[in-house]
Write a protein that binds this DNA or RNA. Sequence first.
DNA 1: CGCACTTTTGAACAGAATCAAGTTTTGTGG
DNA 2: CCACAAAACTTGATTCTGTTCAAAAGTGCG
Lengths: 248, 248
Amino acid sequence: MLSPIHVHDISFPHLRHACSTCSLRELCLPTGLSVEDMQAVEQLVTQGKPIKRGEALYRAGEPFKALFAVRVGFFKTSVVSEDGREQITGFQMSGDLMGFDAISADHYMCDAIALEDSEVCELPFTEMESLSRQIPALQRHFYKVMSREIVRDQDVMLLLGNMTADERVAAFLLNLSHRFAQRQYASSSFHLRMTREEIGSYLGLKLETVSRTLSRFQDQGLIKVQNRLIELLDLTAMKQLLNQCEGH
Amino acid sequence: MLSPIHVHDISFPHLRHACSTCSLRELCLPTGLSVEDMQAVEQLVTQGKPIKRGEALYRAGEPFKALFAVRVGFFKTSVVSEDGREQITGFQMSGDLMGFDAISADHYMCDAIALEDSEVCELPFTEMESLSRQIPALQRHFYKVMSREIVRDQDVMLLLGNMTADERVAAFLLNLSHRFAQRQYASSSFHLRMTREEIGSYLGLKLETVSRTLSRFQDQGLIKVQNRLIELLDLTAMKQLLNQCEGH
DNA sequence: CGCACTTTTGAACAGAATCAAGTTTTGTGG
DNA sequence: CCACAAAACTTGATTCTGTTCAAAAGTGCG
């Protein structure tokens, strides 16, 4: 399980002050809030709701009440088509916000499932929304985070529409690595929290293809695979594999 | 070229009043604004900027100033990877808003190219943003439109990750049909504004595959293809082809 | 500790890409 | 208005990447 970030907890805005050099801009609540503003935000946020591995934080169709910030743990979000095909639309780790898809139709449009025992903060949307009218920086922050999600989704479209299996898997590993680094976790050696099948669902590949690709990367000396433990041995070669398709 | 919508012009909020039954919720500015609020919005919106076919409304990397609403015409937005592969991320027609991807990094993240002579309204973002703090319905509207884009992007992921060529092309045609219907244009007989290659780029297919699939659909009596003119002959069979993957 | 789930690997297969040629359409300038 | 060149489209043959089917081995959770 991911242990809490030690430098500061990005879901606690009052601690945010302590770390102005933090690279988690996207993830944190906005910087530079006054003490009163931060208190106002904190009063709205429900802390520390635990979600057990395998449980749903929310499911498609449920009424929209709140956004969620992952405090500890790891989630997947997925859309399931009527005939049962699952498309995983993203993996969320500590500091990530979830639930923006629910604003449009006032109910969640995907399932959010914990891939390990996790803990989330609940951000009641209506209240945050009106608070954001009083705190411009907060409003701007939400716009930015949503915009960032749109950009990320478009990057995934590029991946799904144009890339080979090798490129997809390489992009996936590098993206994970980058996000672990942002959170000050080890970025060249980490545990995958998801199955090969879930990786495949996210990347538009079958689990066998994911497995084979990882094995081949290992044969080529790019990585070391030990079950779900991944070690990145040659970052440079890995990045070349991508032809630098959009930096992450 | 698309002629302007005759019932009301969705980009002119002051005309919005005239059509409370409009099905373009997503596209219009919010309903129920007071006359003063609407005037405030109108004062910010730059009307009638013409863009010639083939011209860029904006390009990736340019500084972010405004969102755009398509008044007349047809656009594509696309991401280009370093090695020149183009992924079209969407097609925009009258009433659609563009540019949300630019909020996150303060510059546009994709190219927006006119596929026919078009006309857009410019919505200066910073001004709209502060106005939206005074008009809750406007703020809510922007959140909703961005959320809608996130949902749409996730639907495209499902398409790119899980669907066969046939399903993709069927989904594409049905989606276009639906959007034309929303705009009170003919929905079972319409002109494609984009090339087979552009359709392919959007759907993650090669242009030959798109062409072949359309030809086969025609042989099967599902559609009639005459160059870029498409006639949908059997909506029901078409929808069955999709196994109802998320309604549109 | 055992059973279910996950992963790996092999062999055959299929769907879409690629390569290639020919045709049609479109847009432009004389 | 027509001629011409460029762009777009169709169709066929072949290739290849990733899927499917299958079986065995490994892992971990209860």
